[in-house]
């Protein structure tokens, strides 16, 4: 019974922790971030399961987490404002040859990160980039000139 509350709490707590801790440029997670994620997840699992390692308990916990996630996903598509809080917004990093410094500093993104994304598109210099946008997943979209 308490497992369900623990699971729901664990879900939201992890949501907050991840939202605050890790949103990195490039969309790729560094090994260090993976470690953090596993650490957070593992700790949440410990407290969720407690002293009850029965299949019943774990099944109920998983169902609770899945259900919360579904409701959250539903709410996120229904109310955009909520989605903004949870996923953040896409931000323009580079626009017509101008770095958008607020976004760059706020997201802790270096021009190198943008250039890496541009190279993936086959571009060779910043002058070919019209827009660079950091997406909600953390990946950088490049729009060619």
């Amino acid at each position: 019974m308490y497992t369900i509350f623990h699971a729901v709490f664990g879900y939201f707590f992890m949501l907050l922790a991840v939202r605050v801790l890790v949103r990195r440029p490039g969309g790729q997670l560094t090994p260090f971030e993976f470690v953090i994620i596993f650490l957070i997840g593992g700790i949440a699992i410990l407290s969720t399961i407690g002293h009850d390692p029965s299949v019943t308990n774990c099944t109920c916990a998983v169902i609770a987490v899945g259900m919360v996630h579904r409701f959250v996903a539903m709410a996120r598509t229904r109310w955009r404002r909520l989605g903004r809080w949870m996923d953040g917004l896409p931000l323009v990093l580079l626009r017509d040859g101008q770095w958008q410094l607020d976004a760059m500093e706020g997201m802790r993104i270096e021009p190198d990160d943008v250039m890496a994304a541009a190279r993936e598109q086959g571009l060779t210099s910043f002058s070919d980039v019209k827009y660079a946008v950091v997406e909600r997943t953390g990946s950088i979209s490049i729009i060619k000139r």
Binding site: R23, F34, I37, G66, E135, G138, S139
Partner: peptide, 15 residues
């Protein structure tokens, strides 16, 4: 989404 967001990893790990 093109990539999994950090939270998707954690959800999958949690489950």
């Amino acid at each position: 989404g093109r990539q999994m967001a950090p939270f998707d990893y954690i959800l999958i790990f949690f489950i």
